[in-house]
């Protein structure tokens, strides 16, 4: 009898809070915060390097009502968006060409593979010379950052398309444009979306890194500014807000194009 009771209990969905995984996750966050607070009050580290949670929360609050912050956030967002636009379209086109042309694919791919994982920040001095210290050089760095993962995953995706799907398009006499938009690109949706996701990540990194190096606007500029004026609470507040924003944007890209509705093959 008790056994039967146990079975039914296991089947009814438990409230989310009682779920052991959720519990452990909450415990991790609480643990980290507690550790942080102990560290900040202990005086072990140099004064203010680890500000208290109270100070950081206050700084976050101040940040969120700061006009200056939104203006700079707008610039960074703009730079990332333009970089992703240019690098994304360029990467997609390059991937489509390299994936469909064996000769070009074989010739170019080694370069892409070796350049792909190279930190693009090494090109920053060149970008500064070409595009100045304004948003131009940040966009350029973001663009070359996201070009590679998108081009590589598009080219790889192109080669994984089932040949029979291409035959189907040919027998219905689809023209080149229809083949591209109705067969190739949808058939490659998973590698393309993955490429865009990776590309977005490195575009954000590239842009922010460039902003912290040499710039006059953007979130990276604010962070490095807070750092050099030793406004630690503000710096941490910026990092936290940035972190949350990146997670949000990434989640958004995951749903991009109704990804979770489109069934896998």
């Amino acid at each position: 009898m008790a056994h039967a009771g146990q079975l039914t209990a296991a089947r009814t969905p438990r409230p989310a809070l009682a779920d052991p995984v959720t519990m452990v996750r909450i415990a991790i966050i609480v643990g980290v915060l507690a550790f942080w607070e102990v560290l900040s009050r202990s005086g072990w580290l140099y004064r203010d390097v680890v500000p208290s949670l109270v100070a950081i929360s206050k700084a976050v609050g101040e940040l969120l009502i700061d006009k200056d912050y939104y203006w700079n956030l707008g610039w960074t967002g703009f730079e990332v968006a333009v970089a992703l636009g240019i690098g994304g379209v360029g990467g997609l086109l390059a991937g489509l060409i390299l994936g469909s042309n064996k000769l070009l694919g074989k010739s170019f791919e080694p370069y892409l593979y070796y350049l792909g994982p190279t930190p693009k920040i090494i090109f920053f001095p060149v970008m500064i010379m070409w595009f100045g210290i304004g948003p131009g050089s940040k966009i350029a760095l973001g663009t070359i950052s996201c070009f590679f993962p998108i081009a590589l995953s598009t080219a790889a995706g192109m080669r994984q398309i089932k040949p029979v799907l291409i035959s189907v398009g040919r027998t219905y006499r689809a023209n080149a444009w229809q083949m591209m938009t109705k067969i190739y690109i949808p058939a490659m949706r998973h590698p393309i979306i993955n490429g865009i996701r990776l590309g977005l990540g490195v575009a954000i990194i590239g842009t922010l890194l460039a902003e912290t190096k040499l710039s006059n606007k953007g979130i990276g500029f604010l962070i490095i500014n807070a750092y050099s004026t030793f406004d630690m609470p503000r710096m941490y507040a910026l990092l936290i807000v940035l972190f949350v924003l990146s997670i949000g944007v990434n989640a958004l890209v995951g749903r991009f194009g109704g990804l979770d509705k489109i069934k896998r093959s």
Partner: peptide
Amino acid sequence: PHASIGMVFQEESTFPWRTVVDNVAFPLEL
């Protein structure tokens, strides 16, 4: 490929990203 000839392949050849109705409407869409 000729407009008078329609082919059904041995392999599974439906488009996984389209619903049944959108799969069947595909040649009409083209």
